[in-house]
Design a binder for these strands. Sequence first.
DNA 1: CATGAATGAGCTTTCATTCAT
DNA 2: AATGAATGAAAGCTCATTCAT
Lengths: 205, 205, 205, 205
Amino acid sequence: MTTERLPTEQRQRQIAEAALRIVAEHGVHRLTAAALAAEVGIADGTIFRHFRNKEEIVHAAIDLFEKALESTFPPPTEDPLERLGSFMVGRLELVREHPEFLRLAFNDRLAEAAGEKGAHRIEGLVGRSVAFVRQCLEEAQNRGQVTREAPPMLLVWMVIGVIRGAATGGPLLATVEKDLPGASPTQVWKALERFLRNTTTEKKT
Amino acid sequence: MTTERLPTEQRQRQIAEAALRIVAEHGVHRLTAAALAAEVGIADGTIFRHFRNKEEIVHAAIDLFEKALESTFPPPTEDPLERLGSFMVGRLELVREHPEFLRLAFNDRLAEAAGEKGAHRIEGLVGRSVAFVRQCLEEAQNRGQVTREAPPMLLVWMVIGVIRGAATGGPLLATVEKDLPGASPTQVWKALERFLRNTTTEKKT
Amino acid sequence: MTTERLPTEQRQRQIAEAALRIVAEHGVHRLTAAALAAEVGIADGTIFRHFRNKEEIVHAAIDLFEKALESTFPPPTEDPLERLGSFMVGRLELVREHPEFLRLAFNDRLAEAAGEKGAHRIEGLVGRSVAFVRQCLEEAQNRGQVTREAPPMLLVWMVIGVIRGAATGGPLLATVEKDLPGASPTQVWKALERFLRNTTTEKKT
Amino acid sequence: MTTERLPTEQRQRQIAEAALRIVAEHGVHRLTAAALAAEVGIADGTIFRHFRNKEEIVHAAIDLFEKALESTFPPPTEDPLERLGSFMVGRLELVREHPEFLRLAFNDRLAEAAGEKGAHRIEGLVGRSVAFVRQCLEEAQNRGQVTREAPPMLLVWMVIGVIRGAATGGPLLATVEKDLPGASPTQVWKALERFLRNTTTEKKT
DNA sequence: CATGAATGAGCTTTCATTCAT
DNA sequence: AATGAATGAAAGCTCATTCAT
């Protein structure tokens, strides 16, 4: 069989994308050179003309993931809650477009496949998002938009929990899917925002 | 070397526990027949005198996990928030005692090792917990202990998010560990409870 | 195919011997797990139940080689030339019995297959033999059995050259094989000894 | 990157030389098409525009080696010992200039890489040198320059042994390097010559 | 029940060789 | 002539599973 010849960069991209798809759909244990090759439509051995080894493939996949996440960090607007909102909506839309990412973001599969270094990268990615959320929430607390009584991390966990929950089409919603059936990212954020503001101490006085 | 002969039931339990430990500490890729045998202290072939194949071992491990989770569902007390509190405290304490479970609960590793059927079981386990949390929250909303404005699932995701966050010693806290340093399960719940109730004060006044 | 089951120690020995045979007869490039397995009569994978990896197999082979060489170091008799004679005869007889060793002793094939550590071991083996020969010759010079005029290493190289030459059935003799047709180890040594003593300065005076 | 285009003959030479260098410095296992191409500075596929396959490359390398050896056969002078001397000095100087050759001459690595045919060629090369040495020594014996009592092959082995020993900087000298520290080729030959002639003095008196 | 040797499929990686560009 | 992507046959090694003892 003679496959179309493509420049390395293109093949690398194809392979990285295939890796993402495979891990997301079937799990790391199916991320084999053979599976990758089949997915891309080339011969087994050819994989290693484009990547030195499997680990590098995973790193390329993480790159893709990273770039996608990066694009959802909103510009530093004035209002922290507004910022948090764009972030959340962005993330939820990202997941809607790329369901592959879902199982990656909240899962340490990729990390496992990438060895120590890859695990750290993913940790870093997650950490950055957490830090962003926290930053927004603390600012909001300082401005009195959100109650100062709650420990910031509690709020962070809640927000992350909502993102995760709204993003997961899977298990979390399985039993209760009828609830917010097609709840759009914006709707979810609106509900969350109202809730957060609701608790504001200012309002109580 | 001839190991002491034990009845199948005991060996099965030992093996299932060993499986839990191995997956938790080293990941699925180290869950091999040889590793299990070594952990239990028997010869590798012997494993298959007690289980027909690896999948069954994983199922036994999930059984253990299930039983542990089961034990944290509190008795059906009157007050739904109180019930939710015992549940949450129970779960956090469980994780504190058995850190192995952490990587299992919020991770689909075990599911992956157990094939389709195992994945469904874990999904079910998670689903049951979600349903419980939801039940408590809806009751609380009906009683006016928690604002009725928020969609129940939003609250569910928040609570689950807090449980996950408080349970995970790892990445989530990494950058901000000073926050709730040794926050005990009860302290976490108290903070969450105050927050949940807080949202209703407006209406009360 | 069901092969006879043997205890690891026996299989290890078989495998190490097979390794020696293969390297000697066909060269390192044919020393593959498959070839070893075929030679021993077991399945490919089985090889690695008895050795952790190929390198360990080569080390086991070197062990065999080492033991054989060791056995040809004669006891420390009074007369150095007599000692040298037993050594040489021993070595030649060893090679006659185990032609496999020939290509190993004067070849760095095994060394190459064994990695750094293996190469050093073989170097050490050769070094020990050289040192032994040298020791004998220097003593002989001190006693006046061999001329003191020749630098010791010159004599060493000569003796080693004769051992190698007499041992090699191969290329070295190819063109001139009729010479010392069945020259027995003892005959070769006798000829060499006469030659060495012949040069003695004592006799000239 | 497009490399300068060179006529096949030049590239062939470059490749053959690269082969010699690689085998000498790193061993046959590194003699790969990719390594050759890198050494020469062309793309790996290009190698096979100049040689039909790897075996032919090795043959070209042996050609080079052969030519170098050829050049050290001295003209047929009157005195056989003098002839032998030039030969030996020539060989030792060759090795000093081209240390690559060392590992080739006393090693069947190249032979192994070249298959049956290549092995025979190298055998022939060695055989020719042995025959030359023998010729010289027999003449010398006939002229009474060297004792007639020693079987010619014994002398041949000795001489070859000395050449090998003096050429090998490696293991052979490792333990005793102080001996003939920078022993020049001529010094080595002088020592050997004195020794060979020495054996005849008895009869002369 | 327990042992541990044996199996064979499968995985990652290497490499000589081909061939479209 | 030169390039470099593609191929496919090994090679080394792992592991679930079987089975004679």
